[in-house]
Design a protein around this nucleic acid. Structure first.
Length: 278
DNA sequence: ACCTAAACCTGGGCGC
DNA sequence: TGCGCCCAGGTTTAGG
């Protein structure tokens, strides 16, 4: 699922390829996922790309921004004039049947938004209003930015919910989703069912480091394409090859050899080694 | 206020 | 072959 490392990788790709382009035309193929006036983007030049949690913001030289959330199955793919082979997850050719928006750019380039499940959204909005969107407004501190051990100790101590559920709560911590919550907890041998307020100081400290470690490693490997994630050029990441627990039900734990189990916490699939995660 | 669970979607995998 | 069912899950919304 696109979480911080996946969205960060898309962001870096767009910074490299999309910045400087001008939008000539916007073709909206699915009204459900697009809001705001597309006219406000026409002839706008892309100035900067920002990421807030799992959300993206494309800023233009005029007073507008395009806020984007790809949710689970959204893909944002840039195609320059020289076509480059795309991952099979994109279907090889664009547009495909899941293409929801096509941005026609100057210099014979295009930007496609594909989304199988149609949960994602794109909003044209005044720059000054972006952070007042409910999604951005409620975002908690983020790894690699303003998240600190002291903050984690503070919120953990007063929240009575399983640690894994809390890690994925965007209002408390921005950017962590199911993959990295599972992976970080395995790294520090903490059972995802443990209540957040029962963690020791040392566990919180190690968890803080593990969150950064797994995400940094993921970004280094081009993020995770366990589902249909691809980067801004339609290429797959490789971090799924390094998963220790996520999606590995029935396989052996690389640390103790026990079988990885799938349990449900907060209505979400959770992967855990019941022997070494206590 | 705090916590849980359903709803939103579609395609893929499974059992029959 | 095909039908029905379950599952994936980030965020919002509704309910306890």
């Amino acid at each position: 699922m696109p979480e911080l490392p996946e969205v960060e990788t898309i962001k870096r790709g767009l910074e490299k390829h999309l910045v400087g382009h001008k939008i000539l035309e916007v073709k909206i193929l699915d009204l459900k996922i697009f809001s705001g006036k597309k006219e406000n983007l026409i002839n706008g030049q892309v100035l900067a790309i920002k990421r807030v949690g799992k959300g993206l913001i494309i800023e233009f030289t005029n007073e507008y921004s395009l806020a984007i959330h790809v949710k689970m199955t959204g893909q944002l793919i840039y195609q320059g004039p020289k076509a480059m082979p795309l991952s099979p997850k994109v279907g090889g050719v664009l547009p495909n049947k899941h293409t929801r928006v096509i941005f026609i750019l100057d210099r014979s380039a295009k930007l496609f938004y594909n989304d199988v499940r149609r949960f994602g959204w794109l909003k044209v909005i005044l720059k000054n209003d972006v952070m007042s969107l409910p999604f951005f407004k409620g975002m908690g501190p983020e790894p690699f930015k303003d998240l600190t051990v002291e903050y984690l100790e503070k919120i953990f101590s007063k929240i009575n919910t399983p640690i894994k559920t809390l890690l994925m709560d965007q209002a408390k911590i921005g950017g962590i989703g199911n993959i990295y919550a599972n992976e970080a907890l395995w790294q520090v041998k903490i059972n995802p069912k443990r209540m957040a307020n029962e963690l020791t100081r040392s566990e919180v400290k190690r968890l803080y480091k593990a969150i950064h470690d797994v995400m940094e490693e993921s970004i280094r490997h081009g993020a995770s394409s366990s589902e249909n994630y691809v980067d801004a050029l339609g290429q797959e990441g490789r971090y799924q090859e390094h998963f220790e627990v996520y999606g590995r039900t029935g396989e052996q734990c690389n640390r103790c050899g026990n079988k990885i189990e799938r349990i449900v916490i907060g209505g979400r699939g959770t992967f855990v080694c019941m022997r070494c995660q206590v």
